[in-house]
Design a protein around this nucleic acid. Structure first.
Length: 259
DNA sequence: ATGGCGCATGGAATGCGA
């Protein structure tokens, strides 16, 4: 079972990159972030024609998340239960017996800002909901998306200077997710040094590999031993008018799922 | 090095992303 995540930075602009990537890679599940369109503008027909069902929670201009899958997503949930939020940043659904949680985590803008406080509150609400409700109800759970956190020093270019996305409180919030019993699947496998998932459009960042690893796929304990590979696919980042994020792909062995 | 890009809104200039 292939499960992927990709911040497309406008589904409207990136639709053809998405369709080409789906055709070339055929994941069973793809979590999308930053749709930047309302539900009525979601390109459902094109995605259905590509062989995918979709659960989506869109919004004008900002945010918007979706789960695409080759079998129909079930028990669809939008937003973190109990957390009042106008921003469409979370969608969950069950696909082939695996609970998929797709998140577009807040950016936070700058330490000490209102947006930073919102980021930490959002992360706290997510963690509590996963620990108290989602994980007990769904032992086979995948948390995938744009976390807007580079968890460790190895996840930033060595010359990286900023504070946001790498600050101690953000990294502590990431560790709190790990302490729920989740595993960062990318680090289960040997990876090339300086592996990132996002590069700024400016400064020739992609050419210089001046990036961050902020897009992640975490799995619950019951799925950990089934992980076979996790990679960043830089291919679509090289296209004309790319998203600034690259897809991350997890290969999960579900051959023992009936046991 | 935070400027420089790209996207959205709205129809120019601004807000925002990360």
């Amino acid at each position: 079972m292939k499960i992927a995540t990709w911040n497309v930075n406008s589904l409207k602009v990136r639709l053809h990159h998405l369709l080409d990537w789906l055709a070339a890679n055929r994941p069973d599940v793809l979590c999308l972030q930053e749709l930047k369109l309302e539900d009525k503008a979601f390109p459902e027909a094109e995605i259905r024609a590509a062989g995918y069902y979709a659960a989506f929670s869109g919004q004008k201009t900002y945010n918007g998340v979706a789960i695409l899958a080759t079998s129909p997503p079930e028990d669809i949930l939008c937003g973190i239960p109990g957390f009042v939020d106008e921003q469409k940043r979370l969608i969950a659904a069950t696909v082939a017996g695996v609970r998929i949680v797709c998140g577009y985590f807040p950016n936070g803008q700058a330490l000490g800002s209102e947006k930073f406080a919102y980021k930490l509150a959002w992360l706290d609400a997510l963690t509590r909901w996963l620990f108290d409700s989602a994980l007990p109800a769904h032992p086979n759970l995948v948390l995938a998306g744009d976390f807007n956190i580079a968890p460790e020093a190895a996840d930033t270019h060595p010359e990286w200077k900023g504070e946001i996305l790498v600050s101690p409180p953000e990294r502590a919030a990431f560790q709190a997710l790990i302490e729920c019993g989740l595993t960062d699947t990318f680090r289960l496998f040997e990876q090339a040094e300086h592996s990132y998932s996002w590069w700024d459009y400016r400064m020739g960042s992609f050419r210089r590999n001046y990036g961050l690893r902020i897009d992640h796929i975490l799995v619950s304990r019951t799925l950990r031993d089934a992980c076979r590979a996790c990679v960043v696919d830089k291919t679509p980042r090289k296209l004309e008018r790319p998203s600034d994020h690259a897809p991350v792909v997890l290969d999960l062995d579900r051959s023992d799922k009936q046991k």
